[in-house]
């Protein structure tokens, strides 16, 4: 697998830059727009890895559906005024935050450098996937045979989430117990 390094660094760099912007932007809607760009860059990296299906689904589900819902809710609640204004941040807090970031980065670098673990190569090579009719076909076949149980369990999890949302939304506020 050869990834064009130019495109990898382009996508990865932009992804990091926009992730930082998500945190730094004062307005929640602007943060959400930046997050869309981050998802798009991830999709670009997936596409570089020849995982076209994952790339398309990434844009379709995350950028296209979930983020539209996020923005919708942000605009509906009119949460555009910064609701978490902490005033001037404490100097000790800033120093602590920077120190924590540096330590975390160091840990990551150490973990990836020092780890003796080698990721075993997958059962399928790129050539085999092409021969079997492309990404979409191979993934669907695996999902509905070998991984059918986790796949179905995930949908049960989502169903539970939906039922919970409906239960919360239907509860009448201020109604006495037992009448709602």
């Amino acid at each position: 697998m050869d990834i064009s390094p130019v495109f990898f660094y382009l996508f990865a760099g932009l992804a990091i830059a926009f992730s930082v912007l998500v945190v730094l932007k004062k307005s929640p809607v602007a943060s959400a727009f930046c997050l869309v760009v981050v998802f798009f860059m991830f999709a670009g990296i997936y596409a570089l890895l020849d995982a076209h299906l994952i790339a398309a689904v990434q844009v379709l589900v995350y950028a296209g559906a979930i983020m539209v819902l996020f923005v919708f809710v942000i605009m509906l609640l009119n949460a555009d005024s910064p609701s978490f204004d902490l005033g001037r941040s404490h100097l000790g807090l800033r120093v602590g935050a920077v120190a924590a970031c540096v330590v975390l980065l160091g840990l990551f670098v150490y973990a990836f450098r020092a780890s003796p673990l080698q990721v075993p190569p997958g059962a399928l090579t790129a050539a085999q996937i092409d021969a079997a009719g492309g990404n979409t076909r191979v993934i669907s076949r695996l999902m509905f045979s070998e991984y059918i149980l986790p796949f179905e369990l995930t949908s049960v999890l989502l169903l539970a989430g939906i039922v919970g949302a409906v239960a919360i939304a239907k509860r009448k506020l201020g109604a006495p117990e037992g009448t709602a």
Partner: peptide
Amino acid sequence: FAVASLGVF
């Protein structure tokens, strides 16, 4: 579908 869903932004 992926690209078309971006138009709404």
